[in-house]
Design a protein around this nucleic acid. Structure first.
Lengths: 187, 187
DNA sequence: GTCAATTTTTAGTATACACTCAATTTTGAA
DNA sequence: TTCAAAATTGAGTGTATACTAAAAATTGAC
């Protein structure tokens, strides 16, 4: 634990370097050596502040996941379209964070128990948020069907964002819009 | 390339060991050493038959996917529903292998160049396959719209399968069916 | 200004990995 | 039976990894 000013600064440098490298090379390819090079420090300094590589990586990823949280304040006035736009806007504006999230969801969630729980809780909250917006807009649709539809919508958004991260020419926004249209037919 | 009987047998042992280990430890943790131990052979034998570790892994994943192909001969008689069932069947029958597949789509594609091309090509072929099935079933829908819809469907399937790998109680088949229904409305 | 606590550096260790190669054994067509 | 091609072995290479330790330098409460 850092106690002096320089120690806290170094901690910040390490986390920033880790964040950047996670974006560049991903969760599985990141190395302590690269983090240290990026932060402009030596390995010994890293291990003076973090017990393991994973500790630094998980700290960054936790923050990245938090960044995906759709407005925890929740005023309750948003629409499905605005929520979708927020998602696609965020993913396309900060693709690296989206990548890290997708990577964590697929690879780390199953091996890191505490992260799996976080990711799942986060997802369920988001489904609820989308569902209540959908029900507000389509009062005729039973809430169970609404829930199913929003589960699909979010699954699709995640899948499309992965597709987009692999192929940046893929028009995720257009596909997301079409998806919203498809799911807005009342029957 | 194996030409003698023993060589073909060894090839089979290697693929079986790879399949088993992929299920047990996953894409990121599998090693050539472990594959060889599981197969009861030495590393040199492995490399006599496979150029790289990835070649064995890719062969296993590709075979697993083919096993659920509703129309392996490519006679053009498959339906969107059968293709979707093939996908969910693949993912739910061997969850770990399904996870490996998703992982490859997210991670390997971004960190390993040679895999990225293969995965993207595989995806595009699949979109074409889904689209032609869709057009066959819905001749009234313009093929460009059909393409968009199938791109969404596959994105959603990928997203839902990741969701399912995190939460095995998630009913991926029901959601996939509903998704097909939603995308079958002609307008 | 002192000096113990903290931070940084330097120079490692140990280990695991994918992959190679020359020597040896096995195969199977003739 | 012969023998070249194929298969196997087992020791080995080089490289990269996470992590450590001791010494030197820096910090900041007093």
């Amino acid at each position: 634990m850092a106690r002096y000013k320089v120690g806290l600064e170094t901690q910040g440098k390490i986390l920033e370097a880790t964040r950047r490298l996670l974006s560049e090379v991903g969760f599985e390819a990141i190395t302590v050596k690269a983090i240290c090079a990026q932060a402009g420090i030596q390995a010994g300094s890293f291990y003076n502040l973090f017990a393991t590589k994973d500790e630094a990586v998980l700290t960054v990823v936790r923050d990245a996941i938090s960044a995906f949280d759709p407005d925890p304040e929740g005023t309750g006035n948003d629409t499905v379209e605005s929520l979708v736009n927020a998602y696609t806007g965020f993913v396309t504006k900060d693709p690296e964070l989206g990548r890290v999230y997708a990577q964590m969801a697929v690879t780390a969630a199953l091996t890191q128990d505490h992260l799996a729980g976080r990711i799942q809780r986060h997802h369920e909250q988001r489904v609820e948020r989308f569902t209540s917006a959908y029900v507000r807009e389509h009062p005729a649709v039973p809430s169970s069907l609404a829930g199913h539809r929003m589960e699909i919508l979010l699954g699709a958004l995640n899948g499309l964002s992965i597709r987009w991260s692999i192929d940046p020419t893929f028009d995720i926004c257009a596909h997301a819009s079409l998806m919203v249209d498809e799911l807005s037919t009342t029957p």
